[in-house]
Amino acid sequence: MPHQVPIAEGLFTWPADQPALLCSRCQHCGIASFPVADSCMACSGQEVSVEELPNQGTLWTWTVQHFMPKTPYNSGETMETFKPYGVGYVELPGGVRVEGRLTESDPQKLQIGMPMEVVFAPYRTDDDGNEVISFFFRPVQ
């Protein structure tokens, strides 16, 4: 099995038995930020703690990306192999609305308000042969 590395440090717990997205929460006003930030965008407070976000939420809005973006897009795809992908904001209760790629790209199967869950899966293979792990939102079956 290839070695797995997270797409960015501190975005989610990895490796972990039950990985989760990470947010920072302001100790003054209680507002959560994703990804983790050193200060609070709401009140400018600089005392923040890091916590795990819930794994389930609801789809707040979405779209499907039908053309292949230019760099910095880096998926290992070519113009020939590119597949359209869904993008959306998922409202994680008590936390924040997180933007992420969706595992579903069929517009007929996406609806505002539908339940979603976060999953962690290989996104591409890097130059050293490692599997780069990213987060995705998947409709709850």
Partner: peptide
């Protein structure tokens, strides 16, 4: 389409790598 650089706006490189650094997506959503 424009291809903005996440770093210039203080956003992690991962955000662009996964294909979300796209103004068109924001307007659509």
């Amino acid at each position: 389409a424009f291809n903005a650089d996440p770093k210039e706006l203080g956003i992690g490189q991962w955000y662009g790598e996964v294909g979300m650094m796209m103004t068109t997506q924001f307007f659509a959503m």
